[in-house]
Nucleic acid binder design. Structure first.
Lengths: 292, 292
DNA sequence: AAATATTTAGAAATTATATTCCAAGGATGG
DNA sequence: CCATCCTTGGAATATAATTTCTAAATATTT
């Protein structure tokens, strides 16, 4: 079977005016036919639905469905189709389309997450896992955007019965750090590794004798120097200067990896606890929109 | 990029009997979905059309059309591109290696995020953006794992001066919902769209006359029925039954998209505010580990 | 073990979409 | 300058996707 774009090129000369408009549009944007309805394609090509059908018939196809299949093949079979994807040159602009905004965010986010893989330090994860499982209790720290990640980890560890704590208030975090013992583990999350609060917390935790795990971006930082175990996430450029979106995504993935490893290394106790807590939460669900 | 067959394999265990029949049939004969109608596929798999739709929804797809696209890709994509992403057969297992754990989490997370793109409803995002920018104030709601996402959105909107509120406490959230007016906008985040608290909050917000934006997984839920504007994220199976990791990632990306769009549509005021707030936060940084 | 709730399967109805039909406009050739 | 033949695009129709609903099956509680 031939390619859809090639087929369109072949027949374009024998097309009528309105059919040609559609064929040209599709050669430039084959995705449109893959994802849109006939009506939408016709609108975008500035013509009408019957013209689309006539184009299909002229190309010797049974209908729109067959054209869609051919163009889907085009999109995903050729290796150079990848090359055409990456450059949605993004600028913050009042008329920027939602499509490009979404595409940019998704692309950059997945790229950043994939970079996590190359940075995963297996032995550091194993060490951190062992430390968490052996700890009397685990204190999780993070302020600002990293507070989110810290809270996520706190929720996860709680589900599997790891004794742990987290407080949103930065001063409370320092207080908790001061009260730790050498039987405890501190997990400090900070993208830059150098915010004053985070550093203060890490220092107090160390002074208390706790084992210190740092989740921070690659490169030397005050936090990475203080930490006993460092889990690195990629250094990511702020996405369209809107602040910490990508770093948050990569930190969350790192937290997921740590969490999954902890579950695996304590599977007999973790799974029953996990199932019980999930069930307990879901019991709150569904029951007919119960309310007043 | 996700393979359709792999996706079906992933969800097949969570399927009902009739859905499983279809999934198995498609894994053996992916061509069927590419070339046949729902009715024909249902007949061949010895079941009925609604079951096909339910299978699509369970897989986190928007409908049959999306399943067709994924399976077309499977059929025609170059074999080596598949070989490069060998879906590491993952089992929760005490001796599971960190490499495989990390690879699995990264792969599934990026796949889920990519699926967000195919679900993005441009006009819904535009509508939501306009509602947020036109609102007297924006109240953000979310409990449990979604509280994290809600808090993230709260931080982001705050940075650009959108008057907004968020409270972790679920009862406080209901109170806030009761106090809204028709000049306000409520953004409710819930993966399942049916937790009792979330539904109660959404109902109160509506009763108060507020515009209701729901961020929830595809497929109808109490929340999606209540909401004026629905932003869908893919329905993702819990990653290695460890609970809501993937849904959180996709919700965050959706929140990012909304946030970036809001910035674009109010760029003259947003950017200065954003820069000022980021600068103010960073002033806390660096200054020699200032403490005690 | 009976009663009750919950989930599932599939028939029927609805909605969305593709396709065909047809009338009007416009070109081409006699 | 009329007749014929294309082309176009609005409207009608046919087809297919999706939702809704109900009955049966299954699980859960009493």
């Amino acid at each position: 079977m031939t390619s859809g774009v090639a087929l369109l090129r072949e027949i374009i000369d024998s097309c009528t005016e309105s059919e040609r408009k559609i064929a040209e549009y599709l050669i430039d944007n084959p995705k449109t036919a893959v994802f849109c309805t006939i009506a939408e394609l016709a609108r975008q090509a500035d013509t009408n639905p019957p013209a689309v059908i006539r184009l299909c018939k002229r190309a010797g196809l049974s209908g729109y469905r067959e054209l869609q299949i051919l163009l889907t093949k085009d999109l995903y079979s050729t290796p150079d189709s990848d090359a055409e994807e990456p450059p949605p040159a993004f600028e913050l602009d009042s008329s920027q389309s939602v499509e490009i905004i979404a595409k940019t965010i998704v692309t950059r986010t997945t790229d950043a997450i994939e970079r996590v893989l190359s940075l995963v330090n297996t032995s550091a994860i194993e060490e951190a896992t062992a430390a968490v499982l052996g700890a009397r209790s685990v204190a999780i720290f993070g302020v600002g955007a990293s507070a989110n990640v810290a809270y996520d980890l706190y929720q996860k560890f709680s589900r599997i019965g790891i004794p742990c704590s987290f407080a949103f208030d930065a001063d409370v975090q320092i207080t908790v750090a001061c009260g730790m013992t050498s039987a405890d583990v501190a997990i400090t999350i900070s993208y830059s590794g150098k915010s004053a609060h985070t550093v203060a917390i890490a220092e107090e935790a160390k002074k208390s004798g706790a084992r210190l795990i740092g989740i921070t971006s690659v490169g030397q930082s005050t936090l990475s120097k203080l930490a006993d175990i460092v889990l690195n996430v990629p250094a990511t450029e702020p996405l369209l200067r809107t602040s910490a979106s990508l770093s948050r995504a990569t930190q969350l993935v790192m937290v997921d990896i740590l969490y999954a490893t902890v579950i695996c290394r304590s599977i007999e106790v973790s799974i029953p606890r996990l199932e019980r807590s999930l069930k307990a939460v879901h019991e709150q669900d569904i029951k007919t929109p119960a309310r007043s």
